[in-house]
Amino acid sequence: MSRPKIARKSTHVDMTAMCDVAFLLLTFFILTTKPKPSEAVPITTPNSVANKFVPDKEAVMISLDKNDHVYLSISDNALDRAKKKAMIDDINQRNKLGLTDDEIVRLVKQPFIGVAFSQLKQQAQMTDGQINSKNLPGIPTQDTSNNQLIEWIQAAVTAYQGEHMDLILKGDNVSKYPALKNILTAFKKNEQFKFQMVTTPSNVPTGTDLYKENMSKSTSDKM
């Protein structure tokens, strides 16, 4: 009587399925990764332990670059674009700039405003490639008599009246404090006392009070 034969199993594993999964994941990652939008005005933000994310809508952002130039931008979606149009309309009428509707539409489409009132007409003619820190001198904020940011914030407050608005300040590491102070003056003049400053997240140093606080919070959460 012969023993029943034990079928020899191949050690060869079918890789097809694994290959499918690998490339599916690869495709997923490539397609979902958004390249960092190239910034017309490069700003390196300082680090902080703040852990709240910057709002991406209903936000008026004031950028302060390394040359202490001030730029104004508004979050990019349909509602906020309408607000931006209202703001430019407001500024246009109040200062009698004589911007045409077409120019206002062009300004709204541009990523930010970086010139004095008198030069808005020129900025409206610029193409996307020309919008950069070299061509735009920034909104004048230097002296209190001609701090045009005050009027811009005022326009923003009017445009967002009765609605939520976040004031965001994005400053460069090396920008000087006096430039920041001019911006703060513009905020204060419009009774906007609360604002947020954009920072790059960093870790809380171990052993500090905040670290201990966070630790005790996380352990109490687990309980």
């Binding site: 990652f29 703040a50 709240k52 609360k194 400053m197 997240p201």
Partner: peptide, 16 residues
């Protein structure tokens, strides 16, 4: 891929 969502530090100014 760095998930570098910038964070915001909140500050309230005193009323002068």
């Amino acid at each position: 891929t760095t998930i570098s969502l910038p964070t915001a530090m909140r500050l309230a100014l005193p009323d002068d």
